[in-house]
Simulated scan of single mutants.
Amino acid sequence: MRSITLFTGQFADIPLEILATKAHQWGFDGLELGGHIDLHKASTSQEYCQEILSLLSKNNLKLFAISAHLVGQAVCDHIDERRHRSILPEHVWGDGEPEGVKQRAAKEVIAAAYAAKNLGIKIVTGFTGSSIWHLLYGFPPIDPQQINEGYEDFAKRWKPILDEYKKCDVYFALEVHPSEIAFDIVSAERTLNAIDNHSSFGFNFDPSHFGYQGVDYIEFLCRFKSRIFHVHMKDVDFDWNHPCEAGVFGGHTIFGDPRRFFNFRSLGRGKINFEKIIRTLNQINYQGPLSVEWEDGDMDREVGAQESLQYVRRLDFKRGNIQFDAAFSK
């Protein structure tokens, strides 16, 4: 059975000492740290890393991955103080000059690789940002060269980062997601091509972001089976047969607005076919953790985390090594 972890990003306001105790009491096997770790400090201080590991061990928890989502977003984005300053450490934001922010963000993503190495883990999950997301809809007409330049910019900024990951024997797992350089199957393939299929780059599979777009998330697992480095378990509700007021990308509404086409839900309360996902993960031999990323604005988060854990625990199963009818010949 795979380990079940909690992504701590949605609980970042709770001190790690308290959250670790709660996660243990709830029954999680470990954590994916998001917002509970100083990446720069962890990249240079073994003592700091040991403090984190000891705290988790005291609560019978393991560490499976750390997050560089927020700082990774700034590597390729068009930097906007109103959007980016609040999500970045002050030493990354600096004077706010866009190119400087991008370069310091890249250094921080590299620091995450060294932090992971010091912590004895192999996976950093995160975002990449995108210089061409604003060109998603093709009107006024977009010169194809503009899209090419976006992937060239991604490759220029991320290849040096990924080379450092390779030195650390650590992998970067991009959460394929709107506003990133890869947000569906086609763009994920183009992303890999842009970096010459760099061996240190793969994906953090989160089915919720495929479901509301109408993207085949089972095909994503099959197509990129050797690149599935980490898995987020997150549900989403949508209804293709029910007209709405705000479409697939939300119509500039906030999450939770009932006018939206989709809203994230506690596991088992949305439309994602997790049974099929588990069977496909078995088929592609994914043995990593299943990390609960809980996002449901209508539910108490501690209740939601616990029910999501129990849902995944019931759903997950080990793949058999014999066909059921093979026993008949014995």
Rank of each mutant, 00 (worst) to 15 (best):
M1D: 08
R2M: 01
T5Y: 02
T5V: 08
T5M: 05
L6D: 06
L6N: 08
G9H: 12
F11R: 02
L16K: 13
L16M: 09
E17D: 13
L19D: 00
T21Y: 04
G27K: 00
D29G: 09
L31Q: 03
E32F: 05
G35V: 09
G35T: 00
H36T: 00
D38L: 11
L39M: 06
A42G: 12
T44N: 05
Q50P: 01
E51H: 14
L53C: 05
L56C: 06
K58E: 04
K62A: 06
A65C: 13
S67G: 12
A68S: 15
A68M: 08
H69S: 06
L70I: 02
L70D: 09
V71F: 01
A74C: 12
D77Y: 10
H78T: 14
S86Y: 10
P89E: 07
P89D: 07
E90F: 02
H91E: 13
V92M: 05
G94F: 11
G94A: 13
D95L: 09
G96M: 05
E99C: 05
G100A: 14
K102I: 03
K107E: 14
Y114N: 06
Y114R: 10
A116C: 07
A116R: 01
A116W: 01
K117W: 06
I123P: 00
T125N: 08
I132M: 11
H134A: 11
G138W: 05
F139E: 10
P140F: 07
P141L: 13
Q145P: 00
I147G: 11
N148D: 15
N148R: 13
Y151E: 04
A155I: 07
K159Y: 06
C168N: 09
V176L: 10
H177D: 07
E180F: 00
E180R: 10
F183M: 07
I185S: 07
E189D: 13
A194W: 07
D196V: 12
N197C: 07
H198C: 08
S199C: 10
F210Q: 08
G211Y: 12
Q213Y: 09
G214F: 09
V215T: 08
V215G: 02
I218M: 07
F224W: 03
R227Q: 09
F229T: 01
K234F: 02
V236N: 00
V236W: 03
D237Y: 15
W240G: 09
W240R: 10
N241M: 11
C244E: 02
C244P: 01
E245C: 12
E245F: 11
E245Y: 03
F249R: 08
G250A: 06
G251H: 10
H252S: 12
T253Q: 14
R260S: 03
N263L: 09
N263C: 12
R265T: 14
S266L: 02
L267F: 08
L267M: 14
R269C: 10
E275Q: 09
K276H: 12
K276W: 00
I277E: 02
L281D: 01
L281P: 09
N282Y: 07
I284Q: 11
I284G: 08
N285A: 11
Q287P: 06
Q287L: 08
E293D: 14
E295M: 03
D298N: 12
D300Q: 00
R301H: 02
E302W: 13
A305D: 01
S308H: 03
L309S: 11
Q310N: 15
R313Y: 08
R314F: 01
L315I: 05
L315M: 15
R319M: 04
F324K: 15
F328A: 13
F328Q: 13
S329R: 15
